[in-house]
Design a protein around this nucleic acid. Sequence first.
DNA 1: CTTGGAATGTCAACAACACTGACATAAAAT
DNA 2: ATTTTATGTCAGTGTTGTTGACATTCCAAG
Lengths: 169, 169
Amino acid sequence: MATSNRSTGEALLFLTDEQLRQGIEAMFFAYRGFTADPDRILDKYGYGRAHHRAIHFINCVPGTTVNNLLHILGVTKQSLNRVLRSLIEDGLVEVQVGEKDRRERHLYLTETGQSLEQELSNAQRARMRSAYRDVGADAVSGFRQVLEAMMDPEMKRAYWKLRDNEGTD
Amino acid sequence: MATSNRSTGEALLFLTDEQLRQGIEAMFFAYRGFTADPDRILDKYGYGRAHHRAIHFINCVPGTTVNNLLHILGVTKQSLNRVLRSLIEDGLVEVQVGEKDRRERHLYLTETGQSLEQELSNAQRARMRSAYRDVGADAVSGFRQVLEAMMDPEMKRAYWKLRDNEGTD
DNA sequence: CTTGGAATGTCAACAACACTGACATAAAAT
DNA sequence: ATTTTATGTCAGTGTTGTTGACATTCCAAG
């Protein structure tokens, strides 16, 4: 095996291409599991993953503007607009024109929207909780560290911004 | 320091909805980073993520059949076929009719295909390697454990089957 | 050997959701 | 008054998933 140079410091990080490839595949299969439960629920309502993402972050940052959501989700406004339109038509999302800047549209989940958000995130959390329980707290900490290290710097900022919001706002 | 307030030391399972939600968002943002580099490369050649997945697993299990690939990727044969057709036309994948069962098509990467596979996986491995180095071996182990625990049982089997193959075959 | 069913793979059409580009509207900023 | 910003809309395109229909091949029962 490739772990022949155990004595040197480098060997502590088993960074063979083989190990890295396994990480890549684990990421692929795990993400499938990660989205499987919400996908089944969304299908019932005729929605897709794009709707889920919008609902998730509107719930997370109530009153967020379209532009803000755009940056978090990393899609074009045309793409987001299609999704938002259907959510608004179906009464899951409410729009409020900004008071200070009346160009802005602030987005909120209605009660119906919140209930779908609950249904979706309950399913997703259940899987996450079960995985966490299987492996223990130390593994979870490592999991989060690696994920964060894998993000683009921009995304890392968005991620932290969301985490700050919920503490202060 | 921005690193989380109380993650490392405690052996408790902090399974609050809030902590789980952060895990969900980390997964979302990290997967974006995970696919960003290959996506840029694929774009140059006019391919998409589906092509990447096919190339990856054909490289991983040379001579695999269409049906086998179908199950690994979790798509319909029609969807896979479109992708395979373009890869074959472009000379990246080679098809061999099965000797024992001539209904089967065995898939192999050509030299051109292998070189694209290298380009793609080098980019993806570079990010993975960098993330691994940032966090250390223990965190990596935890990362892999959680990912595996998040997979559907079916996918976990596929994941292990791939890891077995490369040792024996 | 022939026939019918199962397995495998291909072709065609369609839907979801991303993209770009062009344009419209309204409001804020200069 | 003009420019910039935030948002929304229309049209067109591409990738990737879906279903339905069909061709090919194998195998087994008659």
